[in-house]
Design a binder for these strands. Structure first.
Lengths: 341, 341
DNA sequence: CTGTTAGCGCTTTCAA
DNA sequence: TTGAAAGCGCTAACAG
C-alpha cells in the first residue's frame, strides 16, 4: 500500500520521452510543437499510470496553488453560512480549485495571523466574508492578491458581492401593499444601524426599499417601532407595543425573521390571528421562517449564489471592482392576506 | 509592493551561517548542537526579516503540508455544521494547521474526486464527517492516512467521534420522570431508522436511553407515535394523533427539535398550554429551540466539541481506534413542569 | 560545532 | 521537434 506516487518522470519514461516533453504536452504549451505521435504517447502514459501532478512541486515552481482562501469573521458559524460556503465550494471545484477556510472570530490578532498564513501558503485569491452584511476595513495585506468581498463593502476598489436588499425591500413592501394594506408598520427600526454602514448595510437599504415602494404606491409608513436587537425578544416587545397603539397596523414589515418570530408570538398572545388579523412579511428566510405557522413570507438571503459568485470573481482574470447585487427571491408563504373588513 | 519573499537563505546570510545551520535552529533539531551564539543570531535574523518558511518547499521535501481535510457529505450546509467546522478550525489553528473543506453532496463521483484531490495535496489527515450521525462505508483510499470519523461510525478500526445520545436520552427522560410524569409518550418512532445504523445512529441510541431511564425509574412507555420524517409537519401530525388517544400523555419526548416545533403547534391548536397541560422535551438544540415559547428543554448536539476533538485526534500521533462519545448538555428551558392535577 | 551537497517534482530557458 | 540542465525553497546525509 501507499505505493510510490507516479511522477512526471514515470510518465515520460513510459512514453519514451523527456520530462520536458511530457510537461509540455500535459500543460498544453502552444509555443513548442511536439509531434502528434509524441503527444498521444504522453497522454496515454499519463492516463494508464493515473498520473496527477504534485501540487507542492507545482506551486514551488509556479507560485500558484489552485487554492483559494475563505476568510471570515464568524461566518462559518452562522446558520446562513453553510450556503455561502457551499456556493464557493461548488464554483471552486468547477475550476479545479480547493478552498481553505479560516475564521477570525473578529479578533484582529487571529485575523492577522490567518491572513499571513494564507499569503504564505500562496493562495491564489481570497474571499473576505462578513457574517452580517456591513462595511469593513480591508486589511492592507490583502490588496496584494485577488480579493473579493463577500457580504461586505469597503473603502477599497474591490469587487464585492451583496444581497440586493433595497430591491427585496421594495418587493416585500409591495407584496403587502398590493393586497390592499394601507396601515403598514415597520418593526425593527434602529437608527444606529441605519446610519452606520460599519454595523449593518441591511438596515439602511431595507428602509430605503420600503420607503420607495410606499412612495411609488402613494402611501406613507403608518408606524415604525424601535428595537434594540433584531432578535425574538425584540420582536415580541416591539410588536406588543405596536399592537397597543391606537389604530393598530394591519400589516407589519419585520426587518428580519427573528423579529417576525417575536411578532408572531406577540400576535398570538394578543389573540390576533395571522394573516386574518395581521399580515407579516420579513427578510432573510431563516430556516425558522418555514417552520412557523402560518409559513412566513420573506425575502431570502441568497447565500449560496453569493458564495458562488464570489468564488467565480476571485478566479476571474481581473474582475471589475464594484458591487454585485445578488437578487433576494421572495418566498411567498401564508402570512399575508388582504386586510380585514 | 509584493516584495520578494524572505527565504531561509536570507536568514542564513544575515546570521552569517549556512542554510543548514539556519534550518536546524529554526526546526529545533536536537541531534546536532549549534553554539548558543549561532542559535541566537539565526533566531534574531529570522525575526527581523519576518521569515516564514515556504510551505510548498517544505511539503515537497517532507511530504507534509500542515493541512487537514474536512470531507463531508453535506455537513457544510446544515444548520449545525458551522459549529463542527468551527471546532475543527480552532483545534487545527492551535496546532498550526489549516483546513481544507470539501463537500461531496452524497455523490460518489464527487467524493472520489474530492478524496483523490486531497490525497494528492498530501493533506496530513482527514476528518470524514456525516451530516446526520450514522454508520458509513469508508472509502478505502482513506485508510492510507490518518482518518477520523466525525458524527459517524464504520466497519473499520478508526477513531470516531459521536454525540453521547444514549446518555442524553437518559437525562432527557429523567428530566420528565423526576417531575412526576408517569404518562410519557415518545414522538418520532421510526423502526426503519432504529434498525438501520446506515440511516441513523440517533434513533436507536435515543430509544435505548429512554427505555433505560424508564426501566430504572420503574415505569414503562405509555405511548409512542410513528413519524415518517423528523420534521415539523411530522411532529404536528404525530402530536395531533397522540392527543386524540384516550388517556393522553402528560409529557412527550420528541426525537428531535423540529418534531417538537410541530408538537408545539399541535398542542396550541388543541388548546393545550405548554408546560401546564403538556411537558415537552427533545434533542438537538436546534437554534429554533430557543426561539420557541416557552423555550424548549432539549439535549444539545455538541457539534463544536465534536469538531474540535476530531481535529485533535487527526493530529495525534496515533489515536486509538474506537468511539469517543461526546456529552450532550441538557439545555433546561421552560417546557417542563409537573403534570397537572 | 558547522558546511557541502543532493534531491523532493515540476517548469522553462536554452541549445541542438 | 526534442532534450539537458537549472532552479523554485527547503531538509538531511554525510563530511569535516
Amino acid at each position: 500500500m501507499a505505493q510510490r506516487r507516479v511522477t512526471l518522470a514515470d510518465v515520460a519514461e513510459r512514453a519514451g520521452l523527456s520530462t520536458t516533453a511530457a510537461s509540455r504536452v500535459l500543460n498544453g504549451r502552444e509555443g513548442t510543437r511536439l509531434s502528434e505521435d509524441a503527444r498521444q504517447r504522453v497522454l496515454a502514459a499519463a492516463k494508464e499510470l493515473g498520473y496527477r501532478p504534485n501540487p507542492a512541486a507545482r506551486s514551488l515552481r509556479l507560485n500558484k496553488t489552485a487554492t483559494i482562501a475563505l476568510i471570515s469573521d464568524t461566518v462559518v458559524t452562522t446558520r446562513f453560512a453553510g450556503a455561502m460556503i457551499r456556493g464557493a465550494l461548488n464554483a471552486a471545484r468547477e475550476r479545479d480549485h480547493v478552498v481553505l477556510i479560516t475564521e477570525t472570530q473578529g479578533d484582529p490578532d487571529i485575523e492577522r495571523d490567518a491572513i499571513d498564513a494564507m499569503l504564505h501558503r500562496q493562495v491564489d485569491g481570497v474571499i473576505y466574508a462578513a457574517m452580517s452584511s456591513r462595511r469593513i476595513t480591508v486589511p492592507p495585506q490583502l490588496l496584494t492578491l485577488p480579493t473579493v468581498l463577500l457580504n461586505a463593502t469597503s473603502n477599497r476598489r474591490l469587487p464585492a458581492v451583496l444581497p440586493a436588499e433595497e430591491e427585496a425591500a421594495y418587493a416585500v413592501t409591495s407584496a403587502v401593499l398590493d393586497r390592499g394594506h394601507r396601515n403598514v408598520a415597520v418593526l425593527g427600526r434602529n437608527e444606529a444601524y441605519e446610519r452606520d454602514a460599519h454595523l449593518s448595510l441591511a438596515a439602511k437599504l431595507r428602509m430605503q426599499g420600503i420607503r420607495k415602494a410606499l412612495a411609488d404606491h402613494g402611501h406613507r409608513l403608518a408606524a415604525s417601532e424601535y428595537t434594540e436587537d433584531w432578535d425574538v425578544p425584540g420582536g415580541f416587545d416591539g410588536m406588543t407595543a405596536l399592537l397597543r397603539r391606537p389604530n393598530r397596523p394591519t400589516a407589519v414589515i419585520c426587518m428580519n425573521d427573528r423579529l417576525a418570530v417575536g411578532a408572531y408570538n406577540a400576535a398570538s398572545e394578543a389573540g390576533l390571528s395571522i394573516p386574518a388579523d395581521l399580515s407579516v412579511v420579513s427578510f432573510d428566510d431563516d430556516p425558522i421562517a418555514e417552520a412557523l405557522r402560518p409559513g412566513l413570507t420573506t425575502a431570502a438571503l441568497p447565500h449560496e449564489a453569493m458564495g458562488q459568485l464570489a468564488a467565480e470573481l476571485v478566479l476571474d482574470a481581473n474582475p471589475e471592482p464594484g458591487i454585485r447585487w445578488v437578487p433576494m427571491p421572495l418566498r411567498e408563504r401564508s402570512s399575508v392576506a388582504p386586510p380585514a373588513g
